[in-house]
Nucleic acid binder design. Structure first.
Lengths: 150, 150
DNA sequence: CCTTGTTAGTTACAAAAGTAACTAACAACA
DNA sequence: TGTTGTTAGTTACTTTTGTAACTAACAAGG
């Protein structure tokens, strides 16, 4: 844990990357994401952004790409690509908005709604498993702390 | 926090993406990484993997790419590219190992060592600031929890 | 109408990362 | 020595992401 710089005796470098918070955050995020991504990747061939867009549509009802982009803080090009992918998977339809022909109303189709419900259940199960693993107190504490870091 | 699926009354969907742990983890990790990356990106034009490789060399003294790859859990192609970039920046040299001519001994040059020390200080400062922000207890708790999630 | 400026969304291009296949060197053993 | 298998590291190819430029539509003021 504690060691000096290779040869120079001048620096007292009591620093380990493996206990550096941004590093730990990244490792943990990657590990969790790898595990959960199986749910949308293996069964639906979805990417993370697609699952997020699908979620927002399922959660909030019809929205425009702009609204998703704003509410989910996803860049508009990522949303644009995710929408196209979801459209090709027949998970949603788009209809040009009558009051503003620049924007499109995005709606989940039946298969999209089904995927949404299935993935929500999977997410809830995942969260429950995590909670069992960490204990309810710690799981909640973790969420609070992470929220403060955003 | 609590809402039903758009119109179908059958599903009780008490689930918010914004309190889903993998999502929070990702948001927090990205936010922190964005902030700290300025340190190695703006001043040295380094990528995250390059900073990690530099760190391991500074921390453990001369190593081979394979050793870095193993000890840091970074895929060998990423290490390979990072090593080349660091070499082009004149931060390290490579010498073919005499006892195994497949592998190369990587050594930090003076500018690399300086960058290492500077970035370690920056990381320590960053960690200290985070600790002030969260409080020592919570900062430590966070690290412990993140460690359990890897 | 006709500018000027803004907005929704797409496309094109460049940067980064993952995967697989490759080269060169080693090791072990018939 | 020749064969077979393994390892260190690189390269080629593909996928994903980021950035900038673009198109079409709107809005406000002259």
């Amino acid at each position: 844990m504690v060691r000096k710089l290779a040869d120079a005796g001048e620096t007292d470098d009591f620093f380990e990357l493996s206990s550096f918070t941004p590093y730990l955050l990244n490792q943990a995020a990657e590990a969790q994401s790898d595990v959960f991504s199986k749910n949308y990747r293996d069964r639906y061939g979805m990417l993370r952004t697609e699952w997020r867009v699908l979620f927002h549509l399922g959660r909030h009802g019809d929205m425009s790409a702009k609204e998703i982009s704003d509410s989910a803080s996803i860049h508009k090009t990522k949303v644009s690509r995710a929408v196209r992918a979801l459209e090709e998977k027949r998970f949603l339809t788009r209809v040009t908005s009558p009051e503003d022909r620049r924007s499109e109303r995005l709606s989940l189709r039946a298969p999209g709604q089904e995927a949404f419900r299935h993935l929500c259940r999977a997410a809830q199960d995942y969260e429950a498993a995590l909670e069992r693993r960490l204990g309810q107190r710690d799981a909640r504490k973790l969420r609070v702390l992470l929220d403060r870091l955003r």
